[in-house]
């Protein structure tokens, strides 16, 4: 009963935090997909400097814990440009996630048989047209489940933004627990919020996957 009361009473604050978390996650998704696409294009490029840069990027980004990356970006950027914590968190989460998205893209591209590329090129289609019209649409189907999984990871990872003072969902729960001396209650409640979000995303992912399966 007490838990239920706490759940209801905390909802305005937590929903506000949730909206920040959703915004942060959405930005992370958009920018990590863009960055990931650029990195994979560089990685697969025939220009050695590009592919070497991409290899280095992947090694560095995947080799650093998210929280360390976030601190480096936060204190690094804030000391040069005037950006708020939210922006710094969005950048850090996007960079972190982009390495995984790039690898997801690469496995998707590799799943398309090379004969497809040859057939397309033999029709006079350029590299770019072959990628966008033949390879990408097929790779997308392979990639969607992994991409949704990465989105779920990003949603949960966004809690780390609380360490650099972003007022998102987890930060709100931290505040509530400190104010009430009831950490278990509020961390349990905030876990329910994350669970609900992940549940919704999984449900949506299932729909998307079935949509792709239906076509051919």
């Amino acid at each position: 009963m007490e838990f239920l009361n706490a759940l209801i009473a905390s909802s305005p604050a937590l929903l506000k935090g949730l909206s920040v978390t959703i915004g942060l996650t959405a930005l992370t998704l958009v920018f990590s997909v863009i960055l990931g696409a650029i990195i994979v294009a560089m990685k697969m490029s025939s220009i050695p400097a590009f592919s070497r840069f991409a290899t280095g990027y992947l090694a560095v980004v995947r080799g650093i814990p998210l929280i360390a990356l976030l601190f480096v970006i936060y204190f690094g950027i804030v000391s040069v440009f005037k950006v708020d914590a939210f922006t710094a968190a969005a950048i850090g989460l996007s960079v972190h996630s982009s390495a995984y998205v790039a690898e997801i893209f690469r496995s998707g591209i590799n799943s398309v048989h090379n004969g497809q590329v040859e057939a397309s090129r033999s029709l006079g289609m350029s590299r770019v047209a072959t990628m966008s019209r033949v390879v990408a649409p097929q790779a997308l189907r392979v990639v969607v489940p992994a991409l949704v999984n990465q989105a779920i990871v990003s949603l949960k990872d966004s809690a780390v933004a609380s360490f650099i003072t972003v007022d998102e969902l987890f930060m709100t729960a931290q505040r509530l627990s400190a104010a009430t001396f009831q950490p278990l209650t509020y961390y349990a409640i905030v876990s329910l919020y994350y669970l609900a979000m992940v549940g919704a995303m999984t449900f949506f992912a299932g729909k998307v996957e079935r949509y792709f399966q239906k076509r051919g």
């Binding site: 048989h113 004969g115 497809q116 040859e118 057939a119 397309s120 090129r121 033999s122 029709l123 006079g124 289609m125 350029s126 590299r127 033949v134 649409p137 097929q138 189907r141 076509r215 051919g216």
Partner: peptide, 26 residues
């Protein structure tokens, strides 16, 4: 060179052993 290859291939058709139709298209 990419451009001259594309231009030449426009006029040279090729049929493969494994067909290589695009599976996502009718």
């Amino acid at each position: 060179r990419e451009r001259s290859l594309n231009h030449m291939r426009e006029h040279v058709g090729m049929v493969f052993q494994s067909f290589n139709l695009f599976p996502h298209l009718t």
